[in-house]
Design a protein around this nucleic acid. Sequence first.
RNA 1: AGAGAGUUGGGUGAGUGGCUGAAACCAACAGUUUGCUAAACUGUCGUACGGGUUAUACUGUACCGGGGGUUCGAAUCCCCCACUCUCUGCCA
Length: 423
Amino acid sequence: MLLVQHIRDHYDQVLLGLKKRNLVHADTALQQVLALDELRKSSQTQRDQLQAEANTISKEIGILMKEGKTVEATAVRDRSAVLKNQIKELEEQHEQAEVELKALLYTLPNVPYEAVPAGKSAEDNEIVLTHGEIPILPEGKLPHWELIKKYDIIDFDLGVKIAGAGFPVYKGKGARLQRALINFFLDQALAAGYMEVQPPILVNEDSGYGTGQLPDKEGQMYYATEDKLYLIPTAEVPITNLYRDVLVNVSDLPIKNVGYTPCFRREAGSWGAHVRGLNRLHQFDKVEVVQITHPDHSYEALEQMSSYVQGLLQQLELPYRVLRLCGGDMGFTSAMTYDMEVYSAAQERWLEVSSVSNFETYQANRLKLRFKGEDKKSQLAHTLNGSALALPRIVASILENNQGPDGIRMPKVLQPYLGFESI
RNA sequence: AGAGAGUUGGGUGAGUGGCUGAAACCAACAGUUUGCUAAACUGUCGUACGGGUUAUACUGUACCGGGGGUUCGAAUCCCCCACUCUCUGCCA
């Protein structure tokens, strides 16, 4: 959530930023934010003054009562009744301004960082770099959804029986590949200085608001109505919310956490072409890294996280490219996002396997995640996160890119985890 | 799931209608003392939103799990909700 103070002080910059996101009514919305804030402040000032008078009167009454001056006390009490009504009115005005202000702020996305390119859609994303050779596959190459059948390692039909479409069952070497990837990713993150956490995979409503899934994205999450809990769409939600309402010491920054969780997405309305096999699922596995940093260092951290993820892809011997998302394609809460895409050689497509973002103070403001600096004042921290990595599309590209007449070769780094060299 | 107890500042914990934004202790911070460390002593020490100021100072209001109510006045009384703990039941 944007800070009103920031909108007030950097109006033009915020406006320009929101326009980069192609937000049509940005100017109107920002003007309205300022107007509501003014109303909020003026009604508070008036209310506080009256309340101060009322408080004084109450004390006087107390003293009069003690002295047994009942008549005088009654007279003062009448004045108090008048004040009470006025206060109530101002209070309502104040509260309404606050509620409307908050509702409006919830509809405003984060302001993009200056380096974010303008643009409307994925077409306009900037390709930062491309790495690795695209393998030339022999005749008869198969897409991964054929390969998993041929080698009987992932079974979608069984998943349909148990849950439904988009809930695959991993079997034999397929299951072991999952486990190997998860362990490999976690071990790598540990080596890079992240602390491992195992968070709940169901979260309450407050957590959904904290990281920005709510309000608005509730349709994308599975919801357990009986207990009012959401299944997490990403470990970002529980891990970042560990720091909701937390005041950390500046010396503790940066905080670096990593966690493996399954992720659940309803993906309502997004099924169609290009979502075969592992390309899009309702349940998938992901290792997520989260950082909480000092505002001065968050973009360094973003670059760090980006190269960290690239390191993983290099070790897995997958050709990839890095995109800097344009204003129109970036997530609601992000100030800048890099997407990592691997090349899946049988589908002949780039597949997004990671998204690394800096949210600056946008989430921290909602979370009330602050740190106490050297000047003893508390200020909002910056939050970042990235997939490191999401499994299904990694599996898809490993299977496709490494297929050969004698089976599917496994990347060297995974072999110690797998206990076999090929499928 | 049933019964009971509880939720107070960074922590422990007092406080049952006005003198309590809140004792005391601990932690933290600053200073004094000290060859260093430690100890001792003194002081500071919640948050949010306003007013005010170049910025401080100063000042108002609110906040004792959340919401509502009673009252001139609520941490304190009443109602609803959430959460925690204990016992019983069930169970990986």
